[in-house]
Amino acid sequence: MDLADDLISDPYGVYDRLRTTSPVHRIKGTDGQPAWLVTRYADVRAGLADPRLSLDKTNALPGNYQGLQLPSALDANLLNMDPPDHTRIRRLVGRAFTTSRVEQLRAPIRAIADKLLDALGTEGTADLITAYAAPLPIAVICELLGVPGERRGDFRGWVQTLIAPDPGRPQAGKEAMGAMMRFFAELIAHKRHAPADDLLSDMIAAHDAQDGRLSEDELMSLVFLILNAGFENTIQLIGNAIWTLLQHPEQLAALRADPSKTPAAVEELARVEGPALLAIRRFPTEDITLGGVTVPAGETVLLSLSAANRDPDRFAAPDRPDIERDATGHLALGHGIHYCLGAPLARAETEIALTALLDRYPHLALDGDRPAAWRRSQRARGLTSLRVSFRSGPSV
């Protein structure tokens, strides 16, 4: 089944039709190679926690969709690993994203948000993705890793190229990837010479330890994963949340009336318009039955997080956002051992971003007839631009 264009232009409509007719479908991936798409909540949740569904590409059969191909120095990351390597590496970096560590970051995150809003001014129009939703998590993750301030602008440009590639410059993505790899190598060399109180220095120390807990490729891959996945999801969480609230003014009004609902609202907004349409591809290590369909070992399985999160068998009226809903159990950030490592940080940044924005601008609205542009992707669900009008001052 070739649904490549439809899955980009109307993902929720396609998922609804597929989920209604059958829980598992044979489709073509973005590279034209086949994969099995799983759409129902119960099957997706079970699949995310099933150890027989491997992330290791050595378990993939040739001729099946395998997802993004990275240079070997960036490929040894958590999204391509199973235990015990996954367990070993995740334990090394997990302490940087604990709830207690994130609580210590709330004040600095709010300061970054306020600074970005100061730059917007008191009245006007803006693209909230480029002016707010993107630079906030980039600044936070760069601070966490210890990326020098003077290099953050370069890094943001590379990221934007990878997130929203220019069709007229097909080599731009490869050039940005090469520039990032050189940057990572320089940064690692600098931190090795002059370590600081940051996550990258801690990872380098783990790499250089005599017990060899982290290889050179694993170190480089971890930096890449944290700097990219660590903020890409958050950019999309923030942007999608703002878009959804502005599309549903009754939900926006309810949140303004009771800001204490913000944490619950973030969960519901993540459920209904999450940052990822699909979980990372998986490969069965043996023949496996999903939704009554037998998938042979080595073929590719795509678990649709967004289809699961809009399954009416799990969430009533699933296409309608409702910040009063208990969205516990949504799969926007995954489930099982591969649950998003940076989830506590992403949640905190999204809560703070929404609170700061709504505090500052009681008069906030979509600007123009086509204020939003979505990234063309089967995997990610995110805005490349979001035009708004805004004005500070008391609400009327």
Score class of each variant (00 low, 15 high):
297 A>Y: 00
325 R>Y: 04
263 P>M: 08
269 L>F: 09
263 P>D: 07
326 D>A: 09
285 T>G: 12
334 G>C: 10
318 P>Y: 11
301 V>W: 07
337 I>L: 13
299 E>L: 03
244 T>W: 07
338 H>D: 09
237 L>D: 12
243 W>Y: 13
338 H>G: 00
302 L>Y: 03
232 E>G: 01
306 S>T: 12
300 T>R: 08
293 V>L: 01
304 S>D: 04
305 L>C: 00
276 A>G: 03
260 S>Q: 14
250 E>Y: 08
284 P>V: 06
283 F>N: 05
265 A>I: 04
319 D>K: 13
321 P>D: 10
290 L>H: 07
236 Q>L: 07
272 V>W: 04
278 L>V: 03
277 L>K: 12
303 L>Q: 05
238 I>M: 10
288 I>D: 01
265 A>D: 04
291 G>H: 01
332 A>Q: 10
278 L>K: 00
256 R>P: 05
276 A>N: 14
279 A>F: 00
258 D>V: 03
321 P>Q: 09
280 I>N: 02
308 A>N: 02
310 R>K: 12
235 I>E: 04
322 D>M: 02
247 Q>L: 13
334 G>D: 07
283 F>R: 01
323 I>G: 08
257 A>V: 00
291 G>I: 01
241 A>K: 00
304 S>F: 08
323 I>E: 05
317 A>F: 03
